[in-house]
């Protein structure tokens, strides 16, 4: 019958239109920004640097090994290594980044920096409302802007952050046990042979987690 297809099409459209008042399935529009869809946990957008504790500088996990800078496919990371050292989360003195810039106008959110980081220092953020009126300066994030606390990491990726914390705690426990054993051995040695030799410095093993 001529016009049958048009009638069918109109019926389908009418069904969807009427259905949108009763069924959530058929009403797919969300009135952003007043309304928002529920965030998805695995979402990734741009990288940030994680720090432990209160102080963004003292707790910064990054030791500026520059692996992410080398592996970054579009080369959007720029790191300047420090000359001096600061203690990391196990107390071992490590370098820190004097400058850590990510140009998010170049970054393509591929997550390879996160995968190659051996120190769990760089993670993916979920912030997407980054519009700015300064194309160059506004989209170039420096170390201060990139540093975000571990608590923040827990709020955006709770499952992943818990896993990372467990892994780091395990490593820390291992290092502490080793340090303790070394200290005991040194003490025993000192007791056996009195002019005391300088206490043996515990050697922290290089953390290996994170390389999926």
């Amino acid at each position: 019958m001529l016009g049958e297809g048009i009638l069918k099409g109109l019926a389908e459209t009418a069904k969807n239109f009427a259905g949108s008042y009763v069924s959530k399935e058929r009403l797919t529009t969300v009135q952003y920004p007043e309304e928002r869809v529920a965030p998805i946990e695995a979402t990734r957008n741009f990288p940030f640097l994680v720090y432990d504790g209160e102080d963004a500088f003292a707790g910064l996990r990054c030791v500026s090994c520059q692996i992410c800078e080398k592996e970054c496919p579009p080369k959007c990371i720029y790191i300047e290594k420090s000359k001096d050292k600061k203690p990391d989360y196990v107390g071992k003195p490590q370098n820190y980044p004097v400058r850590f810039d990510i140009d998010i106008s170049v970054c393509m959110s591929c997550q390879i920096c996160v995968e190659v980081c051996p120190f769990e220092a760089i993670k993916m953020d979920t912030v997407f409302e980054l519009a700015t009126d300064d194309r160059f300066g506004g989209l170039l994030l420096d170390r201060e802007k990139l540093s975000k606390s571990n608590e923040y990491y827990h709020t955006i990726h709770p499952t992943e952050a818990t896993e990372v914390d467990a892994r780091l705690a395990e490593e820390k426990a291992k290092v502490e046990a080793k340090a303790k054993a070394a200290a005991e051995a040194a003490a025993a040695k000192a007791a056996a042979a009195p002019p005391a030799p300088p206490a043996a410095k515990p050697e922290a093993p290089k953390p290996t987690g994170g390389a999926e």
């Binding site: 998805i40 695995a42 979402t43 393509m108 959110s109 591929c110 997550q111 390879i112 999926e212």
Partner: peptide, 17 residues
């Protein structure tokens, strides 16, 4: 949405190794 919750991105998944 399924892709996003698995791989982290809707279209640029970068999922396989």
């Amino acid at each position: 949405d399924l892709f996003e919750s698995l791989t982290g991105s809707r279209m640029m998944c970068n999922y396989m190794r």
